[in-house]
Structures are given as structure tokens and as C-alpha cells.
Amino acid sequence: MSSNIIETRDLKKRFGNFDALQGMTISVPQGAIYGFVGPNGAGKTTTMRILTTLTKPDHGTATVAGFDVLKERRAVRRAIGYMPDEFGVYEDLRVWEYLDFFAACYEIPENARKTLVNDLLELVDLSHRREDMVDKLSRGMKQRLSLARTLAHDPQVLILDEPASGLDPRARVEIRELLAELARMGKTIFFSTHILADVEDICTHIGIVEAGQVVMQGSLDQLKAQLLETRDIVITLLDNQQAEAVKTIALGRMGVRTVEFITPRAGRTRLRVEMIDTDEGIQAFHRALFDAEIVPLGFQEEEKTLETMFMKVTRGLVT
């Protein structure tokens, strides 16, 4: 197969009357940090459960690290570290005992476990809490401990379900840094989220899902390039009359795709002009307004974010 470490083809899964997955096809390249973005109920968790051999798809195939999730489950389990969205607590264990237990579950011999546990705690910066009870940790620390657990058997792929959900801003940044660090160590990270800021900061790849299907997928650079094809100019004007005039001028120009009124700010009318043009073309458009004796209060190119892209490709099908 190709260099894709996770590959699914046309996954379908039905729970009762609810179609959780309707042909989910994703590919995650080796070494990527892949952000799996979508609204709640879009099928992110179901996809992850299939990839971690916990759920059987009704239809379709999936491979992780070259192993089939249905036919070679054991090899798949060895290759992945999985963190579900709920933190599984053994409230009566100490931090090091928790890691020691899971390391033992991965058949790591007893004499190797002590150093391993210490290294893992060092990595997630929890060495000082080694002897504390697990349920005494803050949510951010639990999440870091969870991450340490997924690393116990040195897997190639980390599958993380909402690693940053419910964390305070500081803990979120810490997790984010940790993920970046793990990616530098050569792990492929496949994580789901609905926080776009996370994706923008650390992801190399992104897949946007809605209603059990991928609506857009690829490397972040690719997607941004696609997105940057058109440019948005927001023009602030004194009143509606001027705005109508600007609209007529804009629609008369080459390269302008749409013109729409957007929410007024401080009583000023605002227009968004979506156009494909060079910098010189935008200057010419600006000058054309002055030629028509309209002086805009503001003429500004809007920076495009993932959020705008996200809103564009999803249709809000899932409530």
C-alpha cells in the first residue's frame, strides 16, 4: 500500500435507525498530525472505534499501519495508542501504578516497566505527581496521564478522541505542545476535535466530516491554497445608498464572484465582495470607487481562516 498509515474505504455503520457512517473514506499519511474535524454526531468517534478494533463496520475496509482492522486486530492493537473521549479512571490507583498496569497489559516485562513509567511521566511532565492518586489530578493532568498511557508500548499511531475537550486554555496549550513534540518523535497523530484553533496551530493534515462522510480532506497547505483562490474585501460605507452604488460597480467588474451585505457595525453598512484578482486589480477596484465619488470608510481584505472554510464546506446537517 502507499505511505498512508491509516486508510479507510467506504466505511458504513448503522446503529438502529441512525446512519453513523455513510461511506467514510479517509487517508492519513505517515508522520502526519491529522485533525479530524466535524460537528458532534458526524461519525468521528465511530470511525475511531472502527480503527481501534472496538466496533465492526457494516461495510467497507480499514487498515492501520498496513494491518486490516477486521482480520489482523492484534497487530493493529500493537500499532496504535488509543485515548477515548472519556478518561477511564481507576480512582484507587496511584499515578505510577496506573501506567505500570497498562504497561503490563502490553506485555512489557516487569524489570523494564520501572524505567518506562519514569520516562513516560517525565515526557508528560507529571514526575512530581508520581505518588498521587489518579483521581486527585486535575483534568488537564489526567489527560496528559492518558496520553502517557497510550505511549506505553511505543505505538506508531496515536488515535485520540477529543484530546483537548473540556480543558482550560492553559491545559489545552500544554496538550497541543505535547502532540507537536510526539509528532517530532515520529508518531502519526490522528485526533478528533471541534475546536478549529487546535487544528490550525498544529495540524499538517485535516479532514472535515459531516453526517458520516468526509466533505473535505488534505494537507493544510493544499486546503489553504484552494481557499485563497478567492479574496474577500470588506467595504464599510456611510449609508445604504452608497452601498447600493458600490454593489453595482463591483458587479460590473471582472473577477467578482459575489457581493453580499453583512452585519452592520456601529451603524455603518458593510459589504463583502468575493473576488479573484491580483493586488493591482484590487487597487483598481478601490480607485474606481473614488472615481464614482464614493469614499469608503473602510476598505480591507479579510483574512481567511479555517473557520470560514469550515462554515463553507459544512451545511449544518447534524444538530
Binding site: L54, R77, R78, Y82, E86, G88, V89, C105, H153
Partner: peptide, 12 residues
């Protein structure tokens, strides 16, 4: 306790 899935994905 929601730890069952965790155990299932290990090699235990």
C-alpha cells in the same frame, strides 16, 4: 467505569 475499551485495545 469506561475502562473496558481501554483494556480491549491493549494486548491483555
Amino acid at each position: 467505569r469506561q475502562t473496558y475499551d481501554l483494556l480491549t485495545t491493549t494486548l491483555l
